[in-house]
C-alpha cells in the first residue's frame, strides 16, 4: 500500500487524539465506589491481576479471580450493574492476597478491581467482558 501525505496527516491526527485520552483525573473520573474505597485517591494502573473471561454464556455465573501482591484489601466493581459494588475483601496477615468468586453482570461492561496495599497506596486493573443483556439478578 502507498502511504500518501493525506494518510500520514490522518495518522498524525489520530495519534494526537489518542494521546489526549489516557490522562487520568479529568478524562476518566473515578467511579464513586472506587473513590469511596480509596478516599478519592486515583489508583496506579497495573500491579495486580484480574482473570475474567472475555465472553460468557451465563451472565449469572461468571468466574473471576483477583491477585494483588502486598494487598490488605480488594474492591471489585461492575459499573454496569444496578448495584455496582460486587464485593470488598479484607485480608488478615495470615491470608494470601487473592480471591476467586462467581459474579453476575447486567450486560457487557468493563469490570474494575482495586487493591489497597499494606505499604500504602492503591493499584487497579480493569477487564472488559461481553455478556448477554438479560434479566439480571444483581
Amino acid at each position: 500500500m502507498r502511504l500518501t501525505r493525506r494518510d500520514s496527516m490522518r495518522g498524525a491526527l489520530a495519534l494526537g487524539a489518542a494521546s489526549l485520552v489516557p490522562l487520568p483525573g479529568w478524562a476518566s473520573p473515578l467511579h464513586p465506589d472506587v473513590a469511596g474505597f480509596t478516599g478519592g485517591e486515583i489508583p496506579r494502573e497495573g500491579g495486580m491481576e484480574m482473570v475474567l473471561p472475555a465472553t460468557s454464556e451465563d451472565p449469572q455465573n461468571i468466574a473471576v479471580s483477583l491477585v494483588a501482591e502486598g494487598a490488605e484489601a480488594l474492591l471489585l466493581v461492575a459499573p454496569g450493574n444496578p448495584g455496582p459494588r460486587v464485593l470488598t475483601v479484607r485480608f488478615g496477615p495470615g491470608a494470601v492476597p487473592r480471591l476467586t468468586t462467581r459474579i453476575r453482570l447486567a450486560g457487557p461492561q468493563t469490570v474494575i478491581a482495586v487493591a489497597r496495599l499494606r505499604e500504602g497506596g492503591f493499584v487497579q486493573v480493569a477487564a472488559s467482558i461481553d455478556v448477554d443483556e438479560g434479566a439480571c439478578a444483581a
Partner: peptide, 29 residues
C-alpha cells in the same frame, strides 16, 4: 468471615453482584 484460632483471616463485604449460592476460593499460610 474466616477466623483461625480467633484471628481474622478474611472478611468479605458482599454486594449484589455476587452470584446465588456464593462461592469463594482463597488461601492461607
Amino acid at each position: 468471615t474466616v477466623d483461625f484460632d480467633g484471628e481474622r483471616l478474611l472478611d468479605i463485604d458482599i454486594g449484589a453482584g455476587v452470584s446465588s449460592n456464593p462461592f469463594f476460593e482463597f488461601a492461607v499460610v
